[in-house]
Write a protein that binds this DNA or RNA. Structure first.
Length: 653
RNA sequence: GGGCCCGUGGCGCAGCUUGGAUAGCGCGUCGGCCUUCUAAGCCGGAGAUCCUGGGUUCAAAUCCCAGCGGGCCCGCCA
């Protein structure tokens, strides 16, 4: 047969051989049987075998025989002369067929593949590479990125990394939402303050102004509404407004204590205006129209904020290929164009001066409900496309943006919070209405759940959030203390470098490790976890592997893999061989958390191995050599898997 | 009211797409291990109606139906 010297997917090689052998046996025992797809799984315990088939359970009924009897027959009829990677085949349990790998050959195949492919091991290339845009983060440039939004960045960046490793051409896009009322609010406040030079990090500075301005405008608006309600004595409405007002007054009090100077100044300046809310709306209208003065103002604020974002994201290891301004879509007429096309369809209607899009009708007409996973009797809400004052809404502009994205790629992945699921669905349906059903099918909403603070939701408008920056600061600080304590001999520069990649790694890991569909309650000890099931734990395992290799100070010359007799060694080899499988699955199902999980499991096993068995001093030397190659392979796979989720693997810590 | 998502030891999670052998892991807890390659570590113990009830199946944490609990959405916000 002739084994190749190395393999891109050792487990798959073994699995293929098992399937082939099993198929031949089946053919021998049941010549008339037409064999469907065989799936082999890992038994719960490696002592039972490396792969197992449960086919006999299915066959039992049809053949009217006990599963175990069938398994025994099939095992007996295997052609032992054809076994290569397989050491033996046995029947077991109630009727499983278990395959044992030949440890010597399988280890050689796996370890040599890893050491040969090195930084490419595991990253099995797709046979249909695509151009894919991953749009992620896209935080509005009105306040710093908070820890909830950081989940978006971490997931989006990890997705981009794994898809790239899979062989796709990836473009990372940041959509700058500089159009809309929220941006007008911050621009208004910034102007009222006389366009001040930022104190501290610009996005943090902007964030304070935004929250205070937004709060003051809200209070002003509610007070007016209250007055109006009182003139008509609408009791229920008065109560409702009062409750809301109380809430905002509490926010105002909070903000006043936190930022007294800024608060006082903004209060004074905003009080000069009779109707600040209208000023904001006016500014929004002027910006959409592209009036020079408005453009200059809004862009100035946005740029300031973005400067802060870039600093934060670069620090976290997140970079982009393109920063797309939403305003460009409006000014270039792309939004208008889309709107005109939509108006020509039978799905757009005018209601009280606003333009509405009848998503339900489109879904009915094109028979989309089943396809989109909705019940037939579910009525989709309509989508407002244009306000009474002629300005557009976010999703309207997003339709134009989506079409623009598809000019550059074949597939779009939007990393957007789960709470926007309906809007993302309406966007998709709008594409069908425009005759771009083909594109709609290549548009993926990668949804993730909220990060909440214990007891309450984060709210940018209320200034209640924990910033990504402060979380990273705290994590790096803690990592520094830890490194200083554990490795005082290291030079200061190196300690800082390690603290940085460990601290940030911890934060990244904490945010990708959980299934995106599950909510995360932010607690400091969760993100600052430096013990098991954390990036530092995996990084530490990697550093330990490096340390062994460093101290060995010799190349493994004659590794004798047949000397791997320990269960833990076999388990590690199996894990290492499985990495390509895990990678492919994580990529195809868009599950970056699988990678985190894999790395953690491998680190666990490696630490158990580290503790139980000597490497450098193992006897005979051929075993020591074999273990050295195993350690080297673990080192490579830990590093590769960490890199996939944007975490750096240090050689010392 | 309707839609989407989640529900696994005291707490936090994995497993569910593709049903299969004793349901994995972390925190906490109890007890051990630094004169041997970094103790950010390792080993062992205690601890589970896999939300409930039906159904499908030789086999259900996993698939289907109904219900319960929690979150999110249903805006001329994003």
């Amino acid at each position: 047969m002739g084994n190749p010297m190395f393999s891109v997917n050792p487990l798959n090689d073994f699995r293929s051989e098992c399937k082939k052998i099993l198929k031949e046996s089946l053919k021998k025992v049941f010549p008339e049987l037409k064999i469907k797809q065989l799936t082999l799984k890992k038994p719960p315990n490696i002592e039972l075998g490396h792969l197992a088939s449960s086919i006999c359970f299915e066959l039992a009924k049809e053949k009217n025989e006990k599963p175990l009897k069938l398994a025994e027959k099939l095992v007996e009829s295997t052609d032992k002369t054809k076994l290569n990677l397989i050491e033996k085949v046995v029947s077991a349990g109630g009727g499983y067929i278990n395959f044992f790998a030949d440890i010597k050959k399988f280890s050689a195949l796996t370890i040599e593949a890893i050491r040969k492919l090195n930084s490419e091991y595991g990253f099995v290339k797709t046979d249909k590479p695509q151009k894919i845009i991953v749009e992620h983060t896209s935080v509005n440039p009105i306040h710093p990125i908070h820890i909830g939004q950081a989940r978006n960045s971490m997931l989006g960046d990890a997705l981009a990394r794994i898809l790239k490793a899979r062989g796709h051409k990836i473009y990372r896009h940041y959509y700058i939402d500089d159009v809309g009322r929220q941006t007008a609010v911050i621009a208004y406040g910034y102007q009222k303050l006389g366009k001040p030079k930022p104190e501290g990090k610009p996005d943090h500075f902007i964030g304070k102004i935004y929250t205070i301005t937004s709060c003051l405008i809200e209070i002003n608006r509610l007070k007016k509404e209250l007055k109006r309600a009182k003139t008509v004595s609408a009791i229920e409405e008065i109560n409702k407004i009062n409750r809301e007002l109380d809430g905002w007054m509490a926010v105002a009090a909070e903000l006043k204590t936190k930022f007294p100077k800024l608060f006082e100044k903004l209060l004074e300046k905003i009080s000069e205006d009779e109707d600040p809310e209208n000023m904001v709306n006016e500014l929004n209208r002027r910006y959409e129209k592209g009036e020079e003065e408005a453009k200059k103002l809004v862009r100035e604020v946005s740029q300031l904020c973005l400067k802060g974002f870039k600093e934060t994201l670069n620090r976290a290891g997140v970079f982009y290929d393109s920063w797309d301004w939403e305003s460009e879509l409006v000014w270039s007429g792309k939004v208008k164009e889309v709107l005109n096309k939509l108006k020509k369809t039978p799905y757009v209607f005018s209601l009280g001066g606003v333009l509405e899009f009848d998503a339900d009708k489109v879904a009915e007409t094109y028979n989309l409900k089943r396809k989109l996973g909705l019940r037939e009797d579910y009525e989709l809400p309509s989508l407002t496309l244009v306000r009474a004052d002629g300005t557009t809404l976010y999703t309207t502009r997003d339709i134009a943006y989506t079409l623009l994205k598809f000019q550059k790629c074949e597939k779009v992945i939007n990393v957007v919070g789960m709470e926007q699921a309906l809007a993302q669905l309406q966007l998709k349906i709008a594409l069908y209405a425009l005759g771009h059903g083909d594109l709609a099918e290549k548009l993926t909403h990668f949804a993730y759940n909220l990060v909440t603070l214990p007891g309450y939701k984060m709210s940018s408008r209320r200034g209640r959030y924990i910033t990504f920056d402060e979380v990273m600061d705290e994590a790096v600080k803690r990592a520094y203390e830890e490194v200083s304590k554990r490795s005082p001999q290291l030079p200061e520069e190196e300690k800082k470098k390690i603290a940085n990649l460990v601290g940030i790694g911890a934060v990244r890991y904490a945010l990708v490790e959980v299934d995106p569909s599950k909510p995360v309650v932010f607690t400091w000890d969760r993100v600052l976890n430096f013990e098991k099931n954390s990036a530092p734990y995996i990084q530490y395992s990697h550093a330990r592997a490096c340390s062994i290799l460093r101290k060995a100070s010799r190349k493994p010359e004659k590794p004798a893999y047949e000397l791997f007799k320990e269960k833990i060694e076999h388990e590690i080899i199996m894990d290492l061989a499985s990495f390509p499988d895990t990678f492919i699955e994580a990529t195809e199902y868009l599950k970056p958390n699988m990678i985190a999980d894999f790395a953690n499991t491998l680190a666990d096993k490696f630490n158990a191995f580290y503790n139980a068995l000597p490497v450098i001093k193992a006897e005979p030397k051929e075993l020591s050599d074999a273990r050295l190659t195993l350690v080297d392979a673990v080192r490579i796979v830990l590093r590769n898997s960490l890199n996939l989720i944007g975490i750096i693997a240090p050689e010392r810590m």
